[in-house]
Simulated scan of single mutants.
Amino acid sequence: MAKRFFQSWLPSPHKVAEMKLMKIFGQRTLNPVLWYVNRKSISKAFFIGTFWGMLPLPFHSILIVLTVLLFEVNLPVSLCLAWLTNPFTLVPILYIGFWLGAKVFQVNMIDQDMILGVLHQISHWITHFGNGHIDLSLAKILLSGLLLEALIFAVILFVITRLFWRWNIIQHYKRRRPIK
């Protein structure tokens, strides 16, 4: 069953509680509710982990743990999904974020001249110790695109997890049913 699949590769509560990051939260991470393996807990954990994992933020693992503690879903599954943003996936995540943001604000996709102009503004701002102007329209486009992208991927993985769980249960019952 799907429950056995997830339980087979999840670490023990004490192993996770001894991680440096988890020591910040104390004994709250040993709450048995955070370790349940059921359809609702796992699918919500996929949603939370994917949403925060798709956003290239520093310390997004802390945001994942805080959200998991708030909604009481499976902790290790959510933390595993924090690794969605890594050096190999960062460029596609940013590109899709820019593309979605450009579609939301109905602007053309960013070209080389626009990026060079922004880099020039940033370098001018740094060399003049904070005096100058930085066009934040690209940041607005990127941020809205990244939030939309994270939400879309989180919903997709949530639905896939629920469908996988249902399919697995159906397959289990088909194997148990006597053949006539």
Rank of each mutant, 00 (worst) to 15 (best):
F51M: 08
P58V: 11
P13M: 07
Q7M: 12
T67R: 01
F47E: 01
D111F: 07
W35N: 09
S12E: 14
I24T: 14
L57A: 11
H60C: 02
F5S: 06
M54W: 06
E18H: 13
R39D: 12
I24S: 10
L116T: 09
W83P: 00
V91A: 13
T50M: 12
M114R: 14
P56H: 05
L79S: 02
F5M: 11
Q27R: 14
K40V: 09
H60D: 00
F47V: 05
W52E: 02
Q106E: 13
L79G: 02
N74Y: 01
I93W: 01
V77D: 04
F47G: 01
P58R: 00
L79Q: 01
L63W: 07
T50C: 10
L21A: 14
T50W: 04
A82V: 03
L79T: 03
V104I: 15
G101H: 10
V16G: 10
D113G: 11
A2Y: 12
I24Q: 13
T29R: 04
A102M: 05
V16R: 08
V73R: 10
F6L: 08
V73W: 00
I64D: 04
F98Y: 15
Q27G: 06
I115T: 12
H60L: 03
L10M: 15
F6M: 05
G26Q: 12
K103Q: 12
V104D: 05
L116W: 07
K44P: 00
I110Q: 09
I96F: 13
W83E: 10
I24Y: 13
M1L: 02
R28S: 15
L116F: 10
W35F: 11
I42P: 03
L81M: 12
L70I: 05
S41F: 03
L70M: 10
L66R: 09
V91P: 00
G49V: 07
A102N: 11
G101K: 09
Y36V: 12
R39I: 08
W9V: 15
F105D: 03
I48A: 10
F5Y: 14
D111V: 07
I115H: 01
L57G: 02
V65A: 00
A45C: 06
K103Y: 09
D111H: 13
Q27Y: 09
Q7C: 05
A45Q: 07
P32H: 13
D113A: 15
L84R: 01
Y95F: 14
A102S: 15
N108F: 08
L34N: 04
V37R: 09
V91W: 11
I42T: 09
P58C: 00
G101A: 08
P13S: 06
P56A: 01
T89R: 05
K40D: 14
P56K: 05
L21G: 07
S41K: 08
P11R: 10
G53R: 06
L100H: 10
W52P: 01
W52D: 01
M1K: 06
F88P: 00
W52T: 02
